[in-house]
Amino acid sequence: MVEHIVVIGAGVYGAAVTASLTRRGARVTVVDAGAPGSGTSGATFSWTNSCGKQPRPYHDLNVAGMQAHRQLAAEVPHSDWYHEGGNLEWAADDAEHEELRKKVAGVLDYGYEARWLSRAEALHLEPDIDPAGLPADGIAYFPREGWIEPTRLIGHLLSSAVSHGAELVHDDPVTGLDSTAGLVRTVRLASGRQLSADAVVNCAGPQAARIAEFAGLVLPMRNTRGVLIHTSPVAVSVSRVIHAPHVHLRPDGAGRLLLHSPETDGAAYVSDTGDISVEPSAVTRVLEAGRALYPGLRAATVESVRVGERPIPSDGLPVLGRAVELPNFHFAVSHSGATLSLHAGDLVAAEALGEDRVEALAAFRFERL
């Protein structure tokens, strides 16, 4: 019988798993090396989508993740962390447009909502865009997509879990796991505390491979860095996620915008002091691209730059559910955690308590790696 579950990591996955476990009546301790939401979950574009994700089981998992966000937002009064404003995307040249056309055709074939807009239709949705920055047509619109504010969501999930008896341990890294008879029995912390466990859920994000190693398991990961630029407050109307050729952006609360460009991710480097820094010229290029698209951004300055480490299993797909050779050790690790965490976290929590989720998790088992 599962009496006490230790969840490692208090980001969006750890918070979602913990909340689901406590709703089901489990006794849970969630531990984190830092503060809740201070890792990847606090440095993410947090776009909720299933736009072009393959194969089909992965697409369907993301669609279910989007629905889980809608459902929670509808159930919780003042759930202001969830924003379903849609996503606009267009291409820079013919080759990129052909790729976008294939993506739209693919999601439409799956029954996913998408349609093509003209420049005038896009400007009706985003009137502050410079018309010269838009093509005459061929603008893809995905109306059910959006974004979340991860730390606000984490706060809700953890406060709900703690109010139902969960214990939150922060700033206390996991230093080891003790196993006997093919099961994890103890989670050891840097403070010297030892937590007895009937089950363990690995929600450690970029550190998931290290936690798996403590359990004697090899989790191949190919983590990448993501550079996010937060602007100062600016009087510009941006209501949805924008994927333009040279800049991605979305609202970030209190009049701020969040900017990103894949080209800038490679500008992050480890400095002589061991800190992660970003080439200033790369940040300037992204801000200038944003200003070119939204002229009202000319008054904006860079308020902060954050670098997150994206946890990506080696084949790009999530790793979810129990490990066969260590059946009380469970994974909840993936890219797209902002989209997936509520739904996938609930599936993992249910399985950790002995419920049958074999079919739902079949495509995402650790053993495939």
Score class of each variant (00 low, 15 high):
residue 70 R to A: 09
residue 85 G to H: 06
residue 78 H to I: 11
residue 93 D to E: 05
residue 92 A to G: 15
residue 57 P to I: 05
residue 83 H to I: 05
residue 99 E to N: 12
residue 90 W to H: 04
residue 110 Y to W: 15
residue 101 R to E: 11
residue 118 S to G: 10
residue 67 Q to N: 07
residue 101 R to I: 00
residue 56 R to T: 14
residue 56 R to G: 11
residue 122 A to E: 00
residue 96 E to Q: 15
residue 78 H to D: 15
residue 122 A to P: 06
residue 110 Y to L: 11
residue 78 H to K: 09
residue 60 D to K: 10
residue 90 W to M: 06
residue 86 G to R: 11
residue 52 G to Q: 00
residue 56 R to E: 10
residue 85 G to M: 07
residue 83 H to F: 13
residue 53 K to C: 03
residue 84 E to T: 11
residue 112 Y to M: 14
residue 94 D to A: 14
residue 117 L to C: 00
residue 92 A to K: 12
residue 114 A to W: 01
residue 53 K to F: 05
residue 62 N to F: 11
residue 92 A to L: 10
residue 115 R to G: 02
residue 66 M to K: 02
residue 113 E to I: 04
residue 93 D to N: 14
residue 77 P to H: 12
residue 119 R to W: 01
residue 56 R to W: 15
residue 69 H to R: 05
residue 55 P to Y: 05
residue 72 L to K: 11
residue 111 G to V: 04
residue 85 G to N: 04
residue 95 A to R: 13
residue 50 S to G: 10
residue 96 E to M: 12
residue 67 Q to G: 10
residue 62 N to C: 14
residue 99 E to F: 05
residue 57 P to V: 07
residue 68 A to S: 05
residue 101 R to M: 00
residue 75 E to A: 15
residue 102 K to Q: 14
residue 76 V to F: 15
residue 118 S to W: 08
residue 94 D to F: 08
residue 56 R to M: 11
residue 79 S to T: 01
residue 117 L to D: 00
residue 63 V to W: 11
residue 61 L to N: 08
residue 114 A to P: 04
residue 107 V to F: 01
residue 112 Y to N: 09
residue 57 P to L: 11
residue 57 P to Q: 10
residue 59 H to L: 07
residue 87 N to I: 03
residue 68 A to D: 05
residue 81 W to K: 06
residue 71 Q to C: 00
residue 111 G to Y: 03
residue 121 E to V: 08
residue 105 A to Y: 10
residue 87 N to M: 13
residue 88 L to W: 06
residue 93 D to R: 07
residue 81 W to Q: 10
residue 73 A to E: 06
residue 70 R to V: 07
residue 91 A to K: 01
residue 79 S to F: 12
residue 52 G to P: 01
residue 105 A to R: 01
residue 122 A to H: 00
residue 108 L to E: 14
residue 65 G to M: 12
residue 87 N to A: 08
residue 74 A to H: 11
residue 86 G to S: 09
residue 56 R to N: 14
residue 77 P to I: 09
residue 76 V to C: 15
residue 77 P to W: 14
residue 116 W to M: 00
residue 80 D to L: 05
residue 85 G to P: 03
residue 86 G to Y: 11
residue 73 A to S: 05
residue 108 L to P: 01
residue 101 R to T: 02
residue 108 L to A: 12
residue 79 S to C: 15
residue 74 A to E: 15
residue 103 K to D: 02
residue 89 E to L: 04
residue 94 D to P: 07
residue 50 S to F: 01
residue 79 S to R: 10
residue 52 G to R: 00
residue 62 N to I: 04
residue 93 D to S: 06
residue 103 K to L: 12
residue 90 W to G: 01
residue 52 G to V: 00
residue 105 A to F: 09
residue 100 L to A: 04
residue 63 V to P: 08
residue 57 P to W: 08
